[in-house]
Amino acid sequence: MANERHTLTALVDNEAGVLARVVGLFSGRGYNIESLTVGEVDPAEGTSRITVVTSGPPAVIEQIEAQLKRLVPVHAVTNWTFATDGVEREMALVKVAGADRAQAKAMAAKLGARVLDDRGQATVFELTDAPTNIGSFIEAMRPLGLCDVSRTGVAAISRDPG
């Protein structure tokens, strides 16, 4: 069966070791992690959201969801890839130091990135977009003096008010 790429989010209790449990589940059972993002979502309730981008055959993705739900501090797991009401974004910081930084800036402006820092020998661009668009932006910068990239991984959320 062909691999599929899925974005899974888990709402978890923000307690010590919860990230290690999720990561240990993936490494222990041989699942892939393409990116992983964690952040507190409700300090009063003490909950965090972990967003994992993974890939595998449909049966494996189904197992990953089920195994995540088994973890005691996990409240809920959502598979956004099949949901029509979810949105996802990723942020990247992209550093360019080439002969033609002006050309890089023009291209960046066209692709929706903004200049975050331009004070030194390099320019740092910031882009928040769908992960594939971030990939395209990095490729566009490559011939224009790309020297470093830092990506946050994906954050995902539903459009639904509930």
């Binding site: 010590a16 070791g17 290690a20 449990r21 240990g24 222990g28 973890l71 005691v72 501090p73």
Partner: peptide, 14 residues
């Protein structure tokens, strides 16, 4: 101990 036993317990606490 919680690190070592994370993979061999249903849940653990420090």
């Amino acid at each position: 101990t919680v690190g070592i036993t994370r993979a061999c317990t249903k849940h653990n606490w420090l």
